Simulated scan of single mutants.
Amino acid sequence: MTETRAEIRLPTQELRDDIPFFTRTLGMRMDMIYPADNPRIAVFSGHGLRLRIEKDAPEPPGTIRILSDAPDIFANGKRRLTAPNGTRIEIEELDPPLVLPQTIHSFVVRKLADGAPWIVGRAGMQYRDLIPDRLGGSIIASHIRIPDAGPVPDMVHYHKVGFQLIFCVSGWVDVLYEDQGGLRRIHAGDCFIQPPEIRHRVMEASENLQVIEIGVPAEHVTEVDHDMKLPSPHLRPEREWQGQKFVHNFGNDAPWAPHRLTGFIARDTTIAENTKNVAGVWVTKPDESAPQWATHDADILFTYVMSGTVTLEGAGREPHVLEQGDAFVIPPGMKTRLSAASRNLELLEVALPGDFITKETP
């Protein structure tokens, strides 16, 4: 049986000055030192790291980040240190709390015809940004596609988020979720919400898979879980992750009801109920009544055009004719109207929070 170790080499000019810093201040263990008569090299280990401090090594001293669940105690509470050899030490929280930035409201219209670039992201998936300014970092909305059918090179992972939606607009995708049984497949019109930190793995996708992914906040951490194996042995539909339940909503099964806006009907994905109103998600389409001007008081109201055409009118603004692939954000208090909707129009509407007030005016 073979054994392999990895070391990071750092330079020093005087090894005797570094030994007490790395052992006493940083709490590492010295595993090796040589030659005995005039030491030039010492090896230290600790905190998941193995360091080789070598006199006159050619590398720059670099930076070491140490993550601790008690950063105010570690190294006497100092968050920034410099070792005698010049290496910078940054001490941070091991599991920092999720920070939800305050929303910077803006009116956003993003058109597919504008030619925003597709960026290759995690697991080879292609991403198009639907809210370029991210509303001050409060949300990211991505149009994601996988052009080719087949297995997806994914790993079991989870996201440190406040809210996350996956809504399928084309094709299908198979995903495994923690405590949700075997493979879960969504087709066009179906959706998942992935509660905060639920473990999951994307397994396979159809040709031309396209989904809309909403994440709150815009910048959030994705961590790989090397220990969990999926599918997990349990089916626990009532389990909550930070107060939210997993939702697998089937579009074909949902009833239609009057929408908050005159001129439209909607089907509810049950996401508001299962996130305790952290967010709400609806699919809307026109009915026979005339649309009205309206305002809302939601913090974030995002809409994506899944099919058809519609005109977005804003008080004091030029109207926008929108079609499939376009998206928009209406800030709270802005007076707007959706008019000239085609009969095949379908909109995906996402609101945070899920419970908010709409006021219509003549």
Results as ranks from 00 to 15, higher is better:
278 V>E: 10
334 M>Q: 15
329 V>G: 12
287 D>Q: 09
298 A>H: 05
342 S>H: 11
289 S>G: 07
347 L>N: 01
311 T>D: 04
316 G>Y: 11
301 L>S: 14
338 L>I: 14
303 T>R: 04
317 R>P: 00
344 N>F: 13
331 P>W: 07
286 P>C: 06
339 S>D: 12
298 A>I: 06
296 H>M: 11
310 V>D: 03
286 P>Q: 02
347 L>I: 02
349 E>T: 14
326 D>P: 09
344 N>L: 12
300 I>E: 02
324 Q>H: 10
285 K>I: 09
296 H>A: 14
348 L>D: 02
284 T>H: 10
301 L>D: 11
317 R>I: 00
286 P>W: 09
290 A>C: 06
307 S>Q: 08
301 L>Y: 12
295 T>I: 14
310 V>F: 02
297 D>I: 09
342 S>E: 11
317 R>H: 03
323 E>V: 05
314 G>N: 05
307 S>D: 14
342 S>W: 08
292 Q>Y: 10
345 L>Y: 01
283 V>C: 14
307 S>K: 11
287 D>M: 06
342 S>D: 06
306 M>P: 06
303 T>N: 13
327 A>C: 10
290 A>Y: 05
297 D>L: 05
318 E>N: 09
314 G>C: 05
337 R>C: 01
327 A>M: 06
332 P>E: 07
349 E>L: 13
310 V>W: 01
314 G>R: 03
338 L>C: 09
314 G>Y: 00
322 L>N: 00
281 V>M: 08
306 M>R: 12
282 W>C: 00
286 P>L: 10
341 A>N: 05
332 P>Y: 09
280 G>A: 07
345 L>H: 02
300 I>V: 13
350 V>P: 13
290 A>I: 12
337 R>A: 02
324 Q>C: 12
349 E>C: 10
325 G>K: 02
315 A>H: 13
331 P>Y: 06
335 K>I: 14
331 P>K: 07
308 G>M: 08
316 G>R: 05
294 A>K: 01
283 V>K: 04
287 D>P: 10
298 A>D: 06
335 K>W: 08
321 V>C: 11
309 T>I: 04
329 V>W: 04
300 I>P: 14
313 E>L: 03
340 A>K: 07
322 L>F: 00
313 E>W: 00
286 P>E: 03
294 A>T: 14
304 Y>F: 15
319 P>L: 03
348 L>P: 08
335 K>E: 15
325 G>P: 06
280 G>F: 12
307 S>N: 13
332 P>R: 13
291 P>C: 04
328 F>I: 05
340 A>H: 14
298 A>N: 07
315 A>R: 11
327 A>S: 15
312 L>R: 03
317 R>F: 00
310 V>Q: 01
323 E>D: 10
293 W>K: 08
317 R>C: 00
319 P>R: 02
309 T>H: 04
307 S>Y: 12
322 L>H: 01
324 Q>F: 00
345 L>F: 10
317 R>W: 00
312 L>F: 03
312 L>V: 11
314 G>D: 00
288 E>G: 15
320 H>M: 03
331 P>G: 08
340 A>W: 04
307 S>I: 12
295 T>N: 03
332 P>N: 12
298 A>V: 05
313 E>P: 04
310 V>I: 15
341 A>F: 02
286 P>K: 02
336 T>V: 15
347 L>G: 00
319 P>S: 08
286 P>V: 09
334 M>S: 12
300 I>H: 09
279 A>T: 04
308 G>N: 02
348 L>H: 02
324 Q>K: 15
349 E>Y: 07
